[in-house]
Structures are given as C-alpha cells and as structure tokens.
Amino acid sequence: MMVNAADIPLWAAVAVAFFLLVGATLALIGAIGFVRLPTFYERIHAPTLGTSWGIGGIMVASMIFFSVAASRIAIHEILIGIFVTVTTPITFMLLARAALHRDRAEQNGKAPDKHTGSGSGPEEIQDEA
C-alpha cells in the first residue's frame, strides 16, 4: 500500500510535522545527554527520553499520517509503542543490576552497598568503599 503526502489536508500535515519533530528532538537530546553525562548511572537516564515521548511523538505522527492519508484508522504503530514501553525497563534493569554487580565485585566505590539505608549520596558511598 502506498499513500501520497500531497493528498492530506494542511492541518494534518502540520500535526504530523509537529509530532515528528518533537519525537526526533527528544531522541537527539537523549543521545546528547548519553554522550555528555559523566557516570554510567547518570547515563542510564538519558536514553529514556527517546524511549518514552521520543517514540510516542513519532508513533503519533505516523498514526495521524496513515489514518488521514488512507482515510481509515491505522493504529498498528501503537504496537511498537507498547512493545518498547514494556521491554525498555527489562533491559535497563538487567543492565543496571549487571553494572551494580560488577562495581560491587571490584569495590571501586561507584555503587552503594546492599543496605545503605536511606538516601546515601555519592560522598557517603566514597567512605564506605
């Protein structure tokens, strides 16, 4: 199936462009933060910009575009959204646990002890290591 971008009305084109640019901007900011932030545990926050509303924006743009252009409801993009939302926590949690495990095994002071109690900042962790 192929649709032509010239067929769709102006309001839909503006909406598609808006959501597309919001999604791509968030993915780009996430990648910038991923390179700029100094430690692993901070870097783990950056890609979630792309996996939350970054994907959301581009999926909404794609849904609007194909629904309006083919003049029937096309919401199969929502499957990618659900899939990524459910799988991202699994990968990030596994990676975080692997990183904690490795940092604790090396005792390099980057990861907190198993029972630090409440709110241990980076300084306290340095002391414990």
Partner: peptide
C-alpha cells in the same frame, strides 16, 4: 502539505542520524 511533511521528515531524519552517530 507535501512540502511541510517532506521538510519535517528530512529534519527528523538528520536529527535521528545524529543521535545514532552519538
């Protein structure tokens, strides 16, 4: 509307390619 969509798609593709490079 075709011009708006193609411009937005081109900019978004550049941004995503930059994100992949980073």
């Amino acid at each position: 509307s075709a011009i708006i969509i193609f411009t937005a798609v081109a900019i978004a593709q550049l941004m995503l390619a930059a994100a992949m490079a980073l």
